[in-house]
């Protein structure tokens, strides 16, 4: 426990000073501020931000995370040459990467809204937006850590990271749409729900859009989703799926880290 916190402390201290991470916070600040100025409406701005967040957060988390951890190789060796346990070191490294990214994201998005002051409804959706970004950062930083541990070659690792992101962002949705089109004669609401749970970005997308009154536009499927996500079961299943999406890569990465030769 102690080692986790110590590793986290110094790793995070390095990460928050990284120009890339500061740029990431400023990027979200500018996008949120820009959208607010153009639309003048916090609710519309947040709805537009959903697409940006779902696209950018996974990409930056997985690419920045992978590159950062490859660059930290000698640092990790230095830590492991001290009397520390590998399991705790790994957890510290992961949190030391993910928490600064969450911080940068939260500050970037939150600041423009806080400056203006927003009503209660907009607060709800802002919190949902921040929560979704946090969960996605957690998942994609965990995948980045897994890749950096498993893959010795940094170019291959970076390629894998981008491929994973493309799969989950573009290819997977294409596949689902294709399936829905081919099978359009059958009731697929349940199947769609299951397929969605298999992709963290999709879970985040639907969970977010349903909070924005956008569900009314989604017709019958939207109604099924709304019922599912509003219910206790739906909430529990969604929370479980998102947790699994964070824990699975963390656990796989930790096991690989414990066996790794540096």
């Amino acid at each position: 426990m102690n080692t986790i916190f110590k590793v986290l402390k110094y790793q995070a201290r390095d990460a928050v000073r990284s120009r890339w991470l500061i740029g990431y916070a400023i990027f979200f600040g500018l996008v949120a501020e820009g959208l607010l100025r153009f639309s003048g409406d916090p609710a519309k701005t947040q709805l537009s931000l959903v697409s940006v967040v779902l696209f950018v957060v996974p990409l930056v988390a997985i690419v920045f995370g992978t590159v950062y951890l490859y660059n930290a190789r000698e640092f990790v060796e230095l830590i492991l040459a001290q009397p520390v346990r590998r399991r705790q070191t790994y957890t510290g490294l992961y949190l030391g990467l993910a928490l600064p990214m969450v911080l940068a994201y939260t500050l970037g998005i939150g600041f423009p809204f806080l400056l203006r002051g927003i009503d209660a409804a907009a607060w709800d959706t802002l919190v949902a937006l921040l929560a979704a970004g946090t969960v996605l950062t957690g998942t994609f930083c965990a995948i980045a850590t897994l890749i950096a541990v498993r893959c010795e070659d940094r170019l291959r690792g970076l390629g894998t990271a981008i491929a994973v992101w493309l799969m989950l962002t573009v290819v997977y949705d294409g596949f689902v749409l294709f399936l829905l089109a081919v099978m359009s004669d059958y009731p697929l609401e349940r199947a769609t729900l299951v397929m969605m749970m298999a992709n963290p970005i999709d879970i985040a997308r639907v969970a977010l859009l349903l909070r924005f009154d956008g569900a009314a536009m989604m017709g019958y499927t939207g109604a099924v989703f709304l019922k599912f996500f509003a219910g206790a079961w739906g909430t529990a299943i969604t929370a479980t799926a998102l947790t699994v999406w964070i824990l699975a890569p963390v656990v796989l990465g930790m096991r690989a880290f414990q066996r790794k030769d540096f």
Binding site: K9, Y10, A72, L78, Q82
Partner: peptide, 18 residues
């Protein structure tokens, strides 16, 4: 080639902690 945004003093502090 350790974390480039940390200072030498911070690295030493980290080793002391660990």
């Amino acid at each position: 080639r350790f974390q480039e945004n940390l200072t030498g003093a911070e690295l030493i502090e980290m080793l002391k902690d660990l």
